[in-house]
Design a protein around this nucleic acid. Structure first.
Lengths: 215, 215
DNA sequence: CGGTGATTTGAGCATTCTCAAGGCTTGTGG
DNA sequence: CCACAAGCCTTGAGAATGCTCAAATCACCG
């Protein structure tokens, strides 16, 4: 069922823009996607990243339009399952309701954690949290030794996620690297060198975060 | 059913704190409540306000603990409906599932709008948005003439909602009042004097916002 | 090899925060 | 009824943080 609605998109492709019509659940099959909102002047805020296995209901209360935009971050395969079909599936597969609830809990919990840093954290605390969250979500950091993972986003996008300009993300990231907290390679692979220090900055441990947001 | 689980609380009362055990849906029957998260050092971020009629599922993915705290803002009556009971009700009253979906859509949409200002907006843009959102949610601003409403929160709480210190909320609010955008009375009643200017600052009209978040 | 997009760094500026003190309102106890 | 305490709002001054503008470098891709 998912495969029949799947489509492959190149990186950076706009799939749904804020206020478009839509009656679908979007399932990220492969690659990364971003859910975002923009101000009239164009500044955008990333509300959440969608990783493989995540699915999102973006509809506003009117039930007809989406309240947020959806865009691919990397090359990605995304299924847009019509709401009617999804609901029918829910009726036939009772476990789906449970899966729904868990996914909703994961989304709202990680958004709340991010919102806390967005409102209250300094730049380094925001980045520390972002790196931990992505580490947990990509499945790196399962054990204490694996601390490197592939983070396929630009500094611009990290800034859009954590409410910073790309320039300030760069500066802060460099400073954190100089202090030995993290290291980067290929502009895209991140290694967490001092996990304890990063957790201290972020104000949460990877373990706690995993319990909260890992389905 | 709701009344049997209802309890009345004084203003400023902590009902659930982050990481407490809980398997309940919290329904705000009367008064205002706040959903919040705190950093280890104590700085807190309000994730959402709960107004009469709103209800929240705060459980984390583990299904056993809450991921956010819940606190009364004013004197309030709140029902904590055990999850099992809520689910049973869902099965017997099919319309409830629909109501659930609409409430969830309203919550995620207004949180996304707030997150956008939190990450990208200046202090006056954040306050302008907060005043519009509260105006829409309290039901003031139904027509174009009614622009005053009762806003039972402290400047400290407005700051916790929009990621500003109480001091800066005060300064910014005073400046907005001097410019004739809003006026205040009794430290709690807000009048929106220049709605168009406020909408311009917030980057959204009250009408659009109402369509997005008003069940 | 040129072109595009991302990163890096510098300099100066704008915004917001922190610390501090004073005033106002409300509620409480004498 | 008054005095006092507690909480909230207001304002000032100076410091910290993050932004804007600008230019140079780097990496990748056709």
């Amino acid at each position: 069922m998912l495969t029949t609605h799947s489509r492959h998109y190149a990186a950076g492709r706009l799939i749904k823009s804020d206020a478009d019509e839509s009656h679908a659940i979007y399932v990220v099959m492969d690659g990364w996607a971003s859910i975002f909102k923009s101000m009239p002047e164009g500044q955008t805020q990333i509300i959440d990243f969608g990783l493989p296995g995540d699915f999102f209901d973006l509809t506003a209360v009117d039930g007809a339009t989406v309240a947020m935009g959806l865009e691919t971050v990397t090359d990605a395969t995304i299924a847009a399952v019509p709401l009617a079909e999804w609901l029918a599936l829910e009726r036939t597969v009772p476990q789906l309701a449970q899966v729904n609830k868990i996914e909703a809990a994961a989304i709202r919990t990680r958004i709340a954690e991010r919102m806390l840093r967005l409102g209250r954290g300094k730049a380094d605390e925001r980045l520390a949290y972002a790196f931990l969250e992505m580490g947990v979500r990509t499945g790196a950091m399962r054990d204490d030794t694996m601390n490197c993972y592939h983070m396929p986003v630009t500094q611009q996008q990290i800034g859009e996620l954590m409410g910073l300009t790309a320039v300030h993300v760069c500066r802060t990231l460099r400073r954190m690297a100089r202090q030995g907290l993290v290291s980067t390679a290929d502009h895209i692979d991140l290694c967490i060198c001092d996990r304890a220090a990063l957790e201290d900055l972020a104000g949460i441990t990877a373990e706690t975060l995993a319990q909260e947001i890992q389905p």
